[in-house]
Design a protein around this nucleic acid. Structure first.
Lengths: 150, 150
DNA sequence: GCTCAGAGTGAATAAGTATGCACAGTTGCT
DNA sequence: AGCAACTGTGCATACTTATTCACTCTGAGC
């Protein structure tokens, strides 16, 4: 039973992002899995799920369901926090940060999915942003500059 | 005040994975930020942090807490599934995949944090793996080859 | 200066989550 | 069969988190 119930939980989490264990419990009951909140608490732990403070809902870890505007807001925050300088060359943009801060900034860049960005790599104190072409990298660099001000 | 406090929160979360808002509150107080749990609840939401059911602790979303062995196993799976060919040049390793499969393979590479790998970018059908140097890229390419067989 | 609107906060409390304990069902051993 | 060990669960309750309401502070516009 447990096995199938947990599969159903994953499915529900992916599709409905339940906002509480009670919410989840009701949905499960509707599917014929009737359990108590206590059991769900244990199931969620077993499944390694995560509760996002932003929306109070359960999600799979890593599944980046962050709505674009939130991702952008977070990127602004990361830029304000970590960015020291911006440079670019051809289709590349290079972001300098303090030591050990490149990784979080790179994650924020990734999540924000800026237009024209192909991918991002975080080193120790440098983030390399690969863009589609030189025009895109110019646009991205400009946009980051603006975020650094705003 | 809020700005700096939230920076301190991110720092504490990265370094200590606080197990509750009370825990976090005590640590912040020690740093001279004295606030109530109510404020922390709001800060955590602003920062988009996540509470993992697995350990009951706060983390950044996406911060891959997957234990290394699991990540490696997952990478093997992704390689078996997606990888078509491996090539390398200087400090770069290039992985070819079918169309639209580069991204998941790149994620798996990232999560696995192989030795000598600086970062990974997934395009459409190509994953670019940047290594520390040529020796590292040779080692990484060899390792991936072995995984493709095993 | 006065007033208003908005941001930030705390105190109290409502809402949500984790867990100690007890117990039932299984499995594997003798 | 008898028994111990283990797993899964519910109930009650302790613990943790979110929210409501009231208050203060700050800056903009008169």
């Amino acid at each position: 039973m447990k096995r199938r119930r947990q599969a159903a939980i994953l499915d529900l989490v992916d599709r409905t992002a339940p906002s509480s264990q009670e919410d989840l419990r009701r949905r499960l009951t509707a599917l014929g899995f009737s359990v108590t909140q206590a059991t769900l608490s244990r199931d969620l732990r077993d499944l390694g799920l995560v509760k996002a403070s932003a929306d109070g809902a359960y999600h799979r870890p890593g599944a980046d369901s962050t709505p674009p505007d939130v991702a952008i807001a977070r990127l602004k925050h990361a830029i304000a926090e970590y960015l020291i300088g911006v440079d670019r060359s051809l289709q590349l943009v290079v972001l300098k940060t303090g030591m050990a801060q490149a990784q979080p900034l790179a994650s924020a860049m990734d999540a924000a999915r800026l237009d024209g960005v192909v991918g991002t790599i975080g080193g120790e104190d440098t983030v390399l942003v690969i863009c589609r072409d030189a025009a895109a990298s110019a646009a991205v660099a400009a946009r980051i500059d603006r975020m650094a001000k705003g």
